[in-house]
Design a protein around this nucleic acid. Structure first.
Lengths: 327, 327
DNA sequence: CTGTTAGCGCATTCAA
DNA sequence: TTGAATGCGCTAACAG
């Protein structure tokens, strides 16, 4: 900036004023400065600006896996909401590791982001509450009560219930479930919904119909193989997420079991690719994009000193072609 | 830091020294400072550090679409390479828009990132060359010659050739091609490879077998519908990327055309989900993860004042179950 | 071993 | 309208 000022023959405060439109400046000087800026290819140093202003115009986003469509759809929503606001996202990944997650959050705080969005993950609410002291936070996938924080959550129990209910409504009674990991609270809630639906419908819970998975494709494949090995009969499968449903679908294909003629299959999430499996997958749609967008908007409001309510969104049943009525 | 120094009863330089291990400090003072840090929940301001040191320990990554697995696999590679180096990625998206891309790059420069990785996109090499004056750059998907820059590229023409060649080797002669967008240089190169393979094999080029797509699923579906509408006969399809292959696969399914019994299908990219389509997709594998990793490593080397050579990687044919020999 | 001091690049208050 | 001066939080001489 020194340099620009020198070339334009003005003081650096004048340059600053022109850059920010903070005050009126004479035409000639303005022109001179703009010429100097163009000539020197000058770009104001945001670090210094932030240091001075006390705002970085950056929001940190803690994701768990940059490779997963699940997270990335949410990120897209965040990106959309941030566009044209002057804020830029600083995306970091916790890799589903509590230690890693804390480290990343601390990094974000050290970089003085103006706010943080935490997408799921394994951090305890108390832990997050503590960070709330230092920076506004919006979380998804859990509830939280604090001054400068809010949560956007989905009722996974109800959604698990709805998925199972759909199968029940189609006259299925022998419904297998491929569970998500024990440590995911969402997964256990979906499972709880499954059991409640069963019990309400007067269907006995059969433990042999439930197999553990880890939310990834291979585990879905393995789960179906296990089910087949057990020799237990079933007419439908509820997979706790779409990725495992893909794996299950492949295992079924390998055994020449047709979908939906022989077995009905329902997933959870509605990933973009789920409309393009063959046949297209029936699933519980999570409004991931919207949640990301809302999270970002809420965060900006909090930063803006406005009060924001936590909210709960709903999953929606998307009936496509992998479920069929039993006659 | 003032505060920490005051609480610990030392000067701020001592605090700094302890934070950075720059010099030996007596046990008592060290202890006092560490206590103060813990007590105040102090986290050094990275902005100020960067401003002072002239390094932000941040590398900018220009991607085009945070929602796409294609880019995200590359990002994962970058993330992996950056882990434990002290560098953090600042990911921004250009949304396939030249203006947007320039804006993002300028933003990254304004934020004084130590280097930039540009993943594909529509920026002209000359344009990038200009930015090279201001910051080290590694690009993928194009070639570039500059002091503090390097490129990691893949020979898409050769890969398009190999894909077509595979079909030819399986005795297919009527091979349709679903093209990528004209403005993607990769797409036109893959198409060029397709034509070369055909011509080398003495197969006449038939324009009616080629349909335009936009690299996304729906266009693959539409492409097959168009092919069918044209009433032109074909026994195999080479889709310019996996996503369009998914769309094509669904269209075929709708028309009760079996894969690979009736039609062979080959994609391009080998996205993670391609092992889980039914049947699993034969495709040209791009080492996306590795490319991301290499890009990041190269960038760090350049930042480290080392000379780095541009390099060319190769796509690899992954034969799965959607292609079959014609007898 | 430790404290004092001079900037890093910018925004802004205070004078002029 | 404009310029000089101050400080944002930190590091790195420099001097003790």
């Amino acid at each position: 900036m020194q340099e620009v000022a020198r070339v334009a023959g003005v003081s650096i405060s004048t340059v600053s004023r022109i850059l920010n439109g903070t005050a009126r400046v004479s035409r000639e000087k303005r022109q001179a400065v703009q010429d100097a800026i163009a000539q020197l290819n000058f770009e104001p140093n945001r670090l210094a600006q932030s240091l001075k202003r006390g705002r970085t115009m950056t929001v940190g986003v803690l994701t768990q896996d940059i490779g997963s469509s699940y997270f990335n759809e949410t990120l897209q929503g965040v990106d959309k909401a941030l566009a044209n606001t002057g804020y830029a996202p600083l995306i970091v990944s916790g890799h589903w590791d509590t230690q890693d997650e804390s480290d990343r959050i601390r990094l974000l705080i050290a970089r003085r982001v103006d706010g943080i969005i935490i997408l799921y993950g394994t951090l305890e609410p108390e832990q997050i509450l503590a960070y709330t002291e230092q920076v506004p936070i919006v979380v998804t996938g859990r509830r939280i009560e604090a001054e400068r924080a809010c949560a956007i959550d989905l009722d996974h129990e109800a959604a698990g219930y709805a998925a199972t209910r759909h199968l029940l409504d189609l006259n299925h009674r022998r419904i297998a479930h491929i569970k998500g990991p024990e440590e995911h609270r969402d997964a256990v809630q979906r499972f709880a919904g499954y059991r409640r639906a069963l019990s309400e419908a007067g269907v006995d819970y059969d433990q042999r119909l439930v197999v553990n998975g880890d939310f990834r494709e291979p585990s879905g494949l393995l789960a179906v193989m296990e089910l087949l090995r057990r020799g237990v009969s079933f007419t439908a499968i509820f997979a706790a997420n779409d990725q495992m449903a893909y794996g299950a679908r492949l295992a079924l294909y390998r055994h020449n079991i047709r979908i939906p003629e022989d077995i009905s299959l329902i997933g959870f999430d509605d990933l973009p690719s789920s409309s393009y499996t063959t046949p297209p997958l029936t699933t519980m749609r999570q409004p991931l994009f919207d949640m990301g967008q809302t999270a970002a908007e809420s965060l900006l409001s909090i930063i803006d000193q406005k009060r924001v309510e936590s909210m709960r969104v709903k999953a929606e049943l998307v009936v496509r072609e992998t479920t069929r009525r039993l006659t």
